[in-house]
Design a protein around this nucleic acid. Structure first.
Lengths: 246, 246
DNA sequence: TTAAATATGTGTTTATTTTACACAATGAAT
DNA sequence: ATTCATTGTGTAAAATAAACACATATTTAA
């Protein structure tokens, strides 16, 4: 807090050439994207993992990642990974955090940008042909390779916060869903129990669920009504001011 | 949405050597940090800018940034930039977003990680010796070099959201501050008017302001009481559940 | 010294939101 | 026809947020 009294180093004005040479030579790192792909199935929050490429981490699982190609934007690269691994391209995807500890990767300096993606497992199920790729219950995942455990935990914490302020969670459900499924989703992500009546009131009052006038099928009890999410309506009405509170 | 029917490319199992060579050779980028350093002075939210290094952008301003050194963690690098430019090292600093558009930098592929920092301008004032560095009113900043305008806007939006859920904004104030200063800060950041009585009630009820039993000096009106922020108390009592609402 | 100006400090009422909680209705399974 | 499991619904109480006015402290100007 107390400042040192030595002089502040002055930044020299660099020529383009100097900058260019710095950029081109010494100070470069490998850059990767890692995607934390969440799914929701059997009332559990899942994450898509693949077996590690590396001998050092054999028998360990990793997130889905790849190096960023020289001509790829970051978001584009993240979409490519998703497309390549799941066959899906119309999914929710958001950048979360960049991890750049010097020794996080055994092959040298690799900085990685973590993206979260939420996909609908029903839709996705048929697409996984590669049997080295699997869904894992998020709560049971331990001991991922590299720093992927930490990345997963960041993204999970991010998700828990984000679903409370944004309807992105709905992308984990089928297009038509019952309120019970929605509640199960929230309970699974947030790891809490919610009051059913208040949960319904809350979502109905937010007023972007469209009643499909259909019901669940093949449930061993009274079938619930099915709804879909009206994203347009959400966009029109979404809150801007949430209030100061912490 | 509708899946293509072609096969999913199988990821080959790579040897360590293959990975290593990929990491070391081709797919590398320059990595920089850009710090969006916010301050609060004359009841305005300010941002610290410096004149561009590059001829292409001469007469334009940029954020404070530098290339990440091979042996530096990202956070460390961000702290170094702050220390170097402001002489401060005990400041609030948080990673916000990474920008990696292919052509964002004229000298080649440079991916940059944006950090936000909040500093107390009183404390900081003496430390700026380099006269190429200046505070600018955030709302008046336009036309920064590179994609720095976009980065600033992201970070500003981030700040507006963040101050509503976390007391980081208090780092913009002197250690002792009046409630009016605090309210001015919130009004400046959020760009709204707040009701004075409700604002006070809110902060008192959150219960981490410590009454210093002192008053403002040299104000041309009744002096307000001074408070400080008890971070410990905040940490102990902070809300975990904010509720689903969007 | 007094009066005017300016901003502080405080409390109540009302509206809104959140919480807690129980029973009738539906359809499937037996 | 009965049982079972789960859906669907409403209300009362509690907590929070919003709207709003007047007395007080200090500086400045008359």
């Amino acid at each position: 807090m107390a400042g040192s009294s030595k002089n502040i180093p002055q930044k020299s004005i660099k020529t383009f050439k100097v900058i260019q040479s710095e950029v081109q030579s010494i100070n470069r790192v490998a850059l990767s994207i890692d995607c934390v792909i969440f799914g929701f199935d059997e009332n559990k929050l899942k994450v898509l993992l693949i077996r590690s490429d590396l001998k050092k981490f054999q028998n360990q699982w990793t997130l889905l990642g790849d190096l960023v190609k020289p001509d790829e934007d970051l978001d584009t690269s993240a979409y490519h990974i998703l497309k390549q691994r799941t066959g899906l391209n119309d999914v929710y995807l958001e950048q979360v955090h960049t991890f750049g500890e010097v020794s996080r990767h055994p092959a040298g300096r690799v900085v990685t940008v973590a993206y979260c993606s939420l996909i609908n497992v029903q839709h996705h199920r048929l697409k996984i042909l590669d049997n080295e790729i699997h869904w894992h219950e998020v709560d049971n995942v331990t001991d991922l390779a590299f720093d992927h455990q930490q990345i997963l935990e960041s993204c999970y914490a991010w998700l828990q916060k984000r679903v409370q302020e944004h309807p992105l969670g709905l992308s984990l459900l089928p297009n038509k869903f019952s309120l019970r499924e929605l509640q199960n989703l929230y309970e699974a992500i947030l790891n809490i129990k919610l009051d059913r009546r208040n949960f319904r009131k809350k979502f109905f009052s937010m007023d972007f669920l469209v009643d499909m006038d259909e019901h669940e099928q093949n449930v061993p009890h009274r079938p619930g009504r099915l709804y879909k999410f009206d994203y347009e309506k959400y966009e029109r009405n979404k809150k801007k001011w949430s209030g100061i509170d912490f």
